[in-house]
Amino acid sequence: MSDDYAITTTDLTRTFGDFTAVDRVSLQVPRGAIYGFLGPNGSGKTTCVRMICGLLGISSGSAQLMGLDVATHPAEIRRLYGYMSQKFSLYQDLTVLENLRFFGRIYGLSRSDVRTTVDAQLESLGLAPYADRRAGLLSGGWKQRLALGAALLHKPRVLFLDEPTAGIDPVARRSLWNLLFELSDAGVTIFVTTHYMDEAERCSHLAYIRSARLLVYGTPSSLKALPDVTPAGNRWLELSCATPTRLLGPVSKLPGVEDSTIFGDTLHLRVAQSFEEAEADELFRSLDETEWGFREVSPGLEDVFVTLTRREQQANQNV
């Protein structure tokens, strides 16, 4: 039943001349999900979102929002979703209050509805003390809250966020995510594009797009369990040590090490059954490393996407 999904796309495609920005992307976003849409810059994330929102024409394929075809119901779908773009896109020379009132009225709320909704929004987002400040004078995190407030005035069922936390500090980022969790609890479907892996970890569903094509989608745990990511007999080890950057080269040459990446102050290794910890211990001693330890871990999302991207590149080269 398509009614179970907030967003569905079928072979969604957009071309600009010879260039294909989005290539046959099919998505199903369950209602109430926090759906993370991942991909490197220029992979087609924003183009995809703009098509679903009816901001860009669809070259072929289709998209439905809450069961409505976006191409044939441009006006109706706009009342169903809220949209917060990458760039701060409210009026810098208007105050916080004026911005919110403007968007309230644009969405056709009555004068008294605007007053009560705007007041409620100011309270819940903690913006009340800044109500009369010009939006342009707010810090990045507060601007983001204001933009979110403006996108929520008409109580949308689906919220699109295009790289919402680009360029804001970690504290503001965390509090924005807390707001998103609250919304999700209240039944709002959230569709968020990002290239931060720690944000991806917070999503209930993920899709990974690269070079215009959808590579994988699913829940974070199902992605981590993908056979492409962890082939049979392989496991992921976390190596904590004093000098991970120094050890990366030698470790990757050990027998049985299939993949190695630096992960914070540790190394993540994908190893086959032939891998022996004793061989590694010997190597580290010969390199005068003082302290180290192995721990079996499940792959992080970064491991997942790095592995998938490499496989895709290899596949392309083999063609």
């Binding site: 706009r78 949209y83 773009s85």
Partner: peptide, 10 residues
Amino acid sequence: GTFEQLMVTP
């Protein structure tokens, strides 16, 4: 960039 925000409204 405010035009994009206007375009998503009705």
